[in-house]
Write a protein that binds this DNA or RNA. Structure first.
Lengths: 205, 205
DNA sequence: TTGGAATGTTAAACACTGTTTAATTACATT
DNA sequence: AATGTAATTAAACAGTGTTTAACATTCCAA
C-alpha cells in the first residue's frame, strides 16, 4: 500500500504545515489575532481546508499548547542533576518562571487561555494529560521533600497545589498586566524578590 | 439651566441603562459572548448609540470591573472587627477566595481578562487605582503582621505580592479550568485544603 | 484506456463581530 | 415658524469562525 502511505505522508505534511503557520502567527500576534484566514493565507490554501485537518480553531491551539509542554519538559531536564529534593523543588520553580518569562504567549496558552481546555472539555474521552503529567512531576518532588522530613503535617496534594498556585499566580498576574499596573518600589525585580520570599519560606518549615 | 440639567440627567440615565444591560448580559454569558448589538437590543436602541457613551467595548467592561471592586471591598468590611493582623490577613484570603467562588465571571474580569487593563493602558493618564487600593490594603495588613513580629527577614512588598499570587493562583487555575482538569483525590475540597496549607505556613513563620 | 468512485480543495455563503460614517430625527432657542 | 444643535439611527466597512455545495484531482477496477 505504498500509495496510501504517500497519501498519509502528504496529509500529515499539510497538517504540520497548518500547525507551523499557526505557530508562527500565534507567536507574533497571539491567539485571538491569529485567524483561520491568516493561517490559510500563510500556507496559500483556502480557509476551508483547515477544517479537514482540525475540528476547529481550538483544536489547532490545543496542538500548539502540547508543544509548549514539550518545551517546558525540555527545560526541566536539568533537574535530574539536583539530588536534594528541596533544592530540586526550588530550582523547578525558577525554571517554571523563566519559561513563563521567555514564552509569555505560550505560557498564557498553556495555563490561562480557555482555548486548549475548552477543546478537551468538548471531547469527553480525552483528558489534560499534559497538565496531569506536569502536576504529577511536581507532586512527586514534594513527596520526596516530605519523605526526608520537610513540610511536616502537610498533605502532599494540597501543598503541591498551593506551590503551583503561588508560582502560577506570580507569573499570570504579570502576563495579564496586573503586576505592571501596581506601583511597586522596584517593579522589575518584584517577581524575583517575591519568589525569594517564597523559597525562604519553603526552607524554613 | 433646568433644561440642561434634565438633559444631563437623561444622558446619565442612558449611560447607566447601557451599563445595566451590559452587566446582566455579562453575568449570564461572559464578556466575549456579550456583543455591542446584544446590549443595544436589550435597551432597545441602535448599536451606534453606545459609542456616544463609551469609547469602546473595553471601556464598558472597565466600568463593570470597577463595580466588582466595590463588591469585593464591601465583603472586606467585616475585617474591621478582627484585631489581630495575622488573623485578619488569613480572613482576608478567605473572603477573597469566596468572592472569586461566588462571582467567578467578575473575578475573571477583575484579575484575568485583558479588557479592563487594556483600557487603562490605552489611556496613559489614568491608572489602575482599584487594583492599587486593594493591594495597598493587603500590604498594610502584612506590614502590621511584621510590626508585631511576624514574617521576620521578609520584605513587605515582595511578601505581599507572594501572598496575593498564592490566592490568585489558586482561584484563577480553577476559574480557567486547570484545577478541574487535574485528577485530585478530592477535587471539590482541594482549594480549601490548599488554603489551609497556606495559612498553616503563615502561622508558623 | 476509460468510467466511476473517492478524495482533496475551493468559492461562496451564513451569521456573526466591533466600529465608523453620514444621514436623519428631535428638540430648545431665536 | 425657522434655525441651529444635539441625540439617534441605518448602513456600511472590514473583519471573524464555520458550513455548504460545487469543483478538481487522483486512484483503481473493468
Amino acid at each position: 500500500m505504498g500509495i496510501n502511505d504517500r497519501k498519509e505522508r502528504e496529509k500529515e505534511e499539510l497538517r504540520s504545515l497548518i500547525l507551523a503557520a499557526a505557530r508562527s502567527l500565534f507567536l507574533e500576534k497571539g491567539v485571538e489575532k491569529t485567524s483561520i484566514r491568516n493561517i490559510a493565507d500563510k500556507i496559500e490554501y483556502s480557509p476551508g481546508i483547515i477544517y479537514h485537518y482540525f475540528k476547529d480553531k481550538n483544536e489547532i491551539f490545543h496542538s500548539l499548547h502540547q508543544e509548549g509542554f514539550l518545551q517546558l519538559l525540555g527545560k526541566m531536564k536539568v533537574l535530574g542533576t539536583v539530588e536534594n529534593p528541596l533544592e530540586r523543588l526550588k530550582a523547578m520553580g525558577k525554571i517554571y518562571m523563566s519559561f513563563a518569562k521567555e514564552n509569555p504567549d505560550m505560557y498564557d496558552l498553556m495555563f490561562i487561555k480557555e482555548a486548549p481546555i475548552d477543546h478537551i472539555a468538548h471531547h469527553k474521552e480525552e483528558d489534560w494529560k499534559e497538565g496531569n503529567n506536569t502536576f504529577s512531576f511536581l507532586r512527586s518532588t514534594v513527596q520526596e521533600c516530605i519523605d526526608i522530613g520537610n513540610f511536616k503535617g502537610h498533605d502532599v496534594e494540597a501543598l503541591t497545589y498551593m506551590i503551583w498556585s503561588t508560582v502560577h499566580g506570580m507569573v499570570s498576574l504579570r502576563i495579564r498586566g496586573r503586576c505592571e499596573a501596581i506601583y511597586f518600589e522596584n517593579q522589575d525585580t518584584i517577581m524575583e524578590e517575591a519568589y525569594l520570599s517564597f523559597t525562604k519560606i519553603l526552607d524554613s518549615f
